[in-house]
Design a protein around this nucleic acid. Structure first.
Lengths: 246, 246
DNA sequence: CGCAGGGTTGAGCGCTCTCAATATAAGTGG
DNA sequence: CCACTTATATTGAGAGCGCTCAACCCTGCG
């Protein structure tokens, strides 16, 4: 069992600064408007961290659901394997984002795999659930996080259902850029953690098509690309790829 | 405000039978293992119904979130409209299914439109949220419903990302069939409520392609189709379209 | 009856895939 | 440190699936 012991408020705040904030639990904690006391309790939820080596899984599709994971550092993909062994990448996740929420109804629906050596915070669901009953702000937050995941998926459905290949890649690059920025990294220069094949799976394209598009974007002066290194030279230009629909 | 007045248990059960069960709230109520007393409270959440005429919307993208809706009768589509006015259908919903959960973080993300004269049960979110704190089973249920929506969307992502046109249509038909059966309708014979264009949008295909595929399935003896009427003549054959991946 | 919305079908094009060869990186073990 | 292996990327040529454009048909309804 997990014991919630009394901690001095200042100590709680300090501990939060170490554990929750450095776990980058922004999705769950930051905008929730929790009191210091509530923060302490939430912070206690993160009762363990776990290193996940590149290529290892955090959880596998079908295995029993018992925790949500917050990415503390590193980079992950989530994917489904279909009956014929075909993989569909359903998302990429970086620091501060949550993994495993699709498992709340019993077992994980997909598999989460680290694309580089990473670390996650383990948040046992039983504790979260219990606590969310006492802390309305946390409950609202949890629902909101789930709802936002649905909204994100709908965005991907729109991408897959109605965009042409170059629009998909442009959307992908802009999305990555925005997320890197929010984490204090460069908006225009980054290393891709995933392979062309994984990008292709996510975007509903073949890896050769992805590769060709990178080359085409480079030829058009939109980006500079060399294997996994990408520099966006003309963000407005990349955005224009989306604007010029049809 | 909504007043929870004391009701005799038997009366509560009767009222539940009328309101909740006939609202087909199976997603939320049925497998939750609620006590009679809890059922009464949940049933009180459905404080109003609303008729939605064909073509009308239940809620619109961007409007303020205040309720989840359960389909009582009829048929709905949800869709996103992108900047250029392009529509992406994100789902079809029939009796007993829930609409509007993607709005929990403030405002509805998509628009829900009735494809035939329909009726929904209005479940004010403030009440649900409050109640889910008192009734753990309901809370778990709500999370599960949200999680299942995410899983559903991942399934659609797989469909859009990795299936060929005929596989998509086969998947669509089998999914509809399964859902009709669960509601006591025929598994093999039904009227489509949506247009070819809406099916196409959902499946990431053009309406002409959808039409051609229906014709092709008919020629192969898999189905019989005449405008919106569909009869599946060879379910195993339709399933084989999926099995024979490339 | 005429109109409008939805559905079907055809012809041809083009985007993306398939197949294949080559190039580049990143390990691995001697 | 260097050959060797393996994973990942790039690029080309050609094919085919699904799209575009267009004509026609069906059905319901005022």
């Amino acid at each position: 069992m997990h014991a919630v012991t009394a901690i001095h408020p200042a100590a709680a705040a300090a501990k939060f600064a170490v554990t929750c904030s450095s776990c980058n639990l922004r999705e769950l904690c930051l905008p929730a408007g929790l009191s210091a006391d509530e923060l302490e309790r939430v912070e206690n939820v993160v009762y363990a961290r776990r290193r996940v080596a590149r290529g290892e899984s955090v959880f596998k599709a079908g295995s029993e659901f018992n925790a949500i994971y917050a990415v503390r550092s590193g980079f992950f993909k989530t994917s489904l394997i279909d009956g014929d062994g075909r993989e569909q990448v359903t998302g990429f996740f970086m620091g501060g984002e949550l993994l495993g929420m699709d498992g709340i109804d019993g077992s994980y629906h997909g598999t989460a795999i680290a694309l580089e050596d990473s670390e996650v915070c383990i948040m046992p669901y039983a504790l979260i659930e219990e606590m969310s009953r006492d802390i309305p702000a946390l409950q609202r937050r949890l629902y909101a996080v789930l709802a936002r995941e649905i909204a994100r998926d709908h965005g991907v459905m729109m991408l897959l259902g109605s965009m042409r290949a170059e629009e998909r890649l442009a959307t992908f690059l802009l999305n990555l850029s925005r997320r890197f920025v929010r984490r204090g990294y460069s908006a225009t220069e980054f290393h891709l953690r995933m392979t062309r094949e994984e990008i292709g799976s996510y975007l509903g394209l073949k890896l050769e098509t992805v590769s060709r598009l990178f080359s085409a974007f480079q030829k058009d002066g939109l980006i500079e690309v060399q294997q996994k290194y990408v520099r966006i030279r003309d963000i407005a230009g990349v955005e224009r790829v989306l604007a010029a629909r049809h």
